[in-house]
Amino acid sequence: MATVSHTQTYRRKSWGAVFFILPLLILVVIGFDIPIVTIFNYSISSADGYSLDNFYELVTTPVFAKVALNTLRITVMTTVIVAIAGYILAYWISTLPKTGRMIALALVVLPFWISVLVRTYAWIVVLGNAGIVNKTLQSLGLTAAPISFLYNDLGVTIGMANIQLPLLVLPLYAALIRVDQRHMQAAASLGASKRVIFWRVFFPQTLKAYLAGIMLVTIVSIGFYITPAILGGGRVPMMSNVIETYINTVPRWELASAIAVILLFVTLGLFAIYRRLENRTGDEL
């Protein structure tokens, strides 16, 4: 009986779905979907109708190749650093006693919520020529002249890794604590060494969540705008920074749109992989 009345309620009220969803749908269609279609349209338009001229122009511009390489290099470096340091941090937190876990997690969540601008800005203070790192190195006599960390690959990578770390650590930690401890105890009772237990029993069970986290970091890094703009000082332009140049400095909307469309497809492709990994993480439990 309960199920019957349940379905009836559902059916009777289903007209209401429109009422609940329509306002947001209208806003998102006007304020998001149509603008996305507009840049798509721009990217494939040229003087004589639709063509791929804009993409051709981009690909044949040496500067664009350089920027694409920059983007790839910074994304890979950031992702590798975050992947290694993030796994170790998440693993360590999962071994802490309860209070320690809470404190450590709070310290990971806190920066996650603080403005990207604030977190990026701090690195100018830390890594600048008169910053703490250089002052420490000089007072220890390790270097005579200050090392330039800013306005190059290194600075941008450090800043981006700092911002992306929580994106990997938080979901990965959730996956690590779900691993059944009895698996490791069983392996130990069968005489497996610590190293074998970790690499053959523990790690494989966390691999899918790990890869999903790595994908997420890659997705966010590839379209990052703020940190390369500030810590790169225009010397390490990534794809997103070139979009800005084609809007504000050299107004070429069709080229800005074409880069945005390339970035859109790359992101969607990576996101599709991420979704598959994320869905499979649930299956193995």
């Binding site: 603008p35 721009y42 379209g223 945005a260 992101t267």
Partner: peptide, 14 residues
């Protein structure tokens, strides 16, 4: 999910 820069340029032009 999309990089904010895409939304930014799309909204700017639209």
């Amino acid at each position: 999910i999309l990089p904010t820069i895409i939304t930014a340029v799309a909204l700017y032009i639209a």
